[in-house]
């Protein structure tokens, strides 16, 4: 059986959808089809991939308009009576074909204050942590940095507020640091100002597309918003802060 694929071909200066037809077999994923097309019909087709097992987060694209990993999307999940539409992620500048420039993400991460542990608990320089105290952070650390959550987030995708908002991926990153049992750094002020957490209006699109099933909004973003609200918008604390600054 053959299936058709409409793949975006082009770079920042322009391009168009090209249709390719390729033989499909049981169990194939979208990335397999792209590889077949690349090897047989379009040697210069640009696509990122590495592990092909949903662990590295390289092959992010938009499949029939939905942000997904190409290696984890089986053709059997898609309607094949019409062409499968493959586009690059929209929230980032296009490099070529299915490859986008995601370097902004790496710049953002570098600006977030790094992990800072408390002094070791034991003589030998090690710490003690209970499993139940790290379960939540381990959920956040499952993130494979595919940036699909960034791609789907309307603050970045529609409003292009990359300068003011770090996006769901990095709110998860901050949450992993803030809720790490050993970490003693304070990132709450950054969250409010530089990270722009207020831009998130909890539409939960990021949670929906996360291939690692991280409960981004409920478990990471909302608790961080609570910390910001608690620090900056609690009326009693606000009064206390004014009082303290007068006394200084």
């Amino acid at each position: 059986m053959k299936a058709d694929f409409q793949i975006w071909r082009g770079n920042a200066s322009g391009g168009k959808f090209e249709t390719y037809s390729t033989e499909i077999a049981e169990g194939m994923v979208v990335l397999d089809a792209v590889h077949q097309i690349q090897a047989a019909h379009a040697n210069d087709l640009a696509v990122r991939w590495n592990c092909k097992a949903g662990k590295c987060g390289s092959c992010s694209a938009e499949i029939n308009g939905i942000p997904k990993l190409m290696c984890m999307t089986r053709l059997s999940e898609l309607p094949l009576n019409k062409p499968v539409l493959l586009q690059p992620m929209k929230a980032f500048p296009l490099i070529k074909d299915l490859v986008t420039d995601v370097s902004w993400n790496f710049t953002v991460k570098k600006k977030i204050k790094k992990f800072k542990p408390r002094p070791p608990d034991a003589q030998d320089g090690t710490w003690r942590m209970l499993q139940q105290d790290i379960d939540r952070v381990q959920e956040f650390r499952k993130c494979i940095e595919c940036f699909l959550c960034q791609d789907v987030c309307h603050v970045l995708r529609e409003h292009q507020l990359h300068a003011a908002f770090i996006g769901p991926r990095f709110l998860v990153h901050v949450a992993a640091l803030e809720m790490h049992p050993l970490d003693i750094e304070d990132r709450v002020e950054e969250l409010k100002k530089a990270n722009g957490i207020g831009y998130c209006n909890i539409t939960k699109c990021c949670t929906t597309v996360c291939p690692e099933d991280i409960t981004i909004t409920d478990n990471a973003i909302i608790p961080l918003k609570e910390r910001v609200a608690d620090r900056f918008y609690d009326p009693l604390k606000k009064l206390f802060r004014i009082f303290r600054s007068i006394n200084k």
């Binding site: 770079n11 690349q38 210069d44 490099i95 070529k96 074909d97």
Partner: peptide
């Protein structure tokens, strides 16, 4: 033989 140009050319 490689087709296309040097931009992100997986064949190359």
């Amino acid at each position: 033989r490689v087709i296309g140009n040097r931009e992100y050319n997986t064949g190359w």
